[in-house]
């Protein structure tokens, strides 16, 4: 298990966004997190990545205790993420966006930069990441000018620049057309094959059923079910949650 959360909870005012959730993500797997709107998936991801700190519970990346560790420190441990609501550096070029992702690998002291300026050290690697998501031709354009689907892909390239071991994505397929979803699916599999553990929050069931090795279902901030995609598809509680509370037996 690369990531382990035990009974973590988070409330906002009176809303229990995440309540007593325990989750264990096996290394080298593609792990999907699903659930109806407002189930607490994004909140859980924010807790895992350090955007929020949990009210209670424990959280480990392998042996390292993550509680109290700010988001930027978790990145150095090999955790990267994308956002449900796209958060790019809109005024910067595609290349600059990806270059910013190499921050933790820039190890020269800053006075060296004062003297030498741009080192161009990660430029080639940044370009190949852009190529990986199909954007190398637009590397000089401003990120804010990209069409929506490509913005999602750019966010993935930017996060990959940190060279993660655990890559968390929040609804990467939202707003993509069928061809783009297909492309995304191939890329996720490829990332998974390179030894990166992928944790993906997704509503798109086609994508989940096709790439995920395991699926974790949440509802109302609580865990509902965990199993293989096939098991999830046939679980009555999961079906009920998706159809709406009133049908639950």
């Amino acid at each position: 298990m690369i990531l382990r959360a035990k009974e973590i909870s988070k409330s906002f005012g009176g809303v229990r966004a995440v309540h007593n959730v325990s989750i264990a993500v096996p290394e080298n797997s593609i792990f999907a997190l699903i659930g109806p709107n407002g189930a607490g998936k994004s909140t859980l991801l924010n807790l895992l990545s350090g955007i929020y700190q949990p009210d209670a519970g424990s959280l480990h990346l392998e042996e390292t205790n993550l509680i109290g560790l700010p988001a930027h420190r978790r990145v150095r441990l090999g955790m990267a993420r994308t956002f449900q609501k796209i958060r790019l550096f809109r005024q910067l070029t595609l290349l600059e966006n990806v270059l910013a992702g190499f921050h933790i690998h820039q190890d020269a002291p800053f006075w060296e930069y004062l003297v030498y300026g741009d080192t161009g050290r990660f430029r080639e690697e940044a370009r190949s990441l852009l190529a990986f998501v199909g954007l190398e031709a637009r590397s000089g354009e401003r990120a804010g000018a990209l069409p929506y689907g490509q913005q999602r892909m750019l966010e993935i390239a930017r996060a990959l620049a940190t060279r993660p071991r655990l890559f968390m994505l929040d609804e990467p397929a939202a707003g993509l057309n069928a061809a783009e979803v297909d492309f995304l699916l191939k890329r996720l599999e490829q990332i998974g094959r390179q030894g990166v553990t992928v944790l993906v929050v997704e509503h798109n069931m086609d994508l989940v059923m096709n790439v995920a090795h395991r699926v974790f279902v949440m509802d109302h901030g609580e865990p509902l079910f965990e199993g293989t995609p096939r098991e999830v598809q046939h679980d009555p509680a999961v079906i009920a949650a998706y159809l709406g509370g009133e049908f639950a037996s």
């Binding site: 930027h72 550096f89 005024q91 800053f110 930069y113 050290r121």
Partner: peptide, 20 residues
């Protein structure tokens, strides 16, 4: 230099900057 990249990243979006 990369320092400039980081400063601009903070200017554009602090949360994403932290996520990198």
């Amino acid at each position: 230099s990369p320092v400039g990249d980081s400063l601009r990243a903070i200017r554009e979006d602090e949360v994403s900057a932290a996520s990198l």
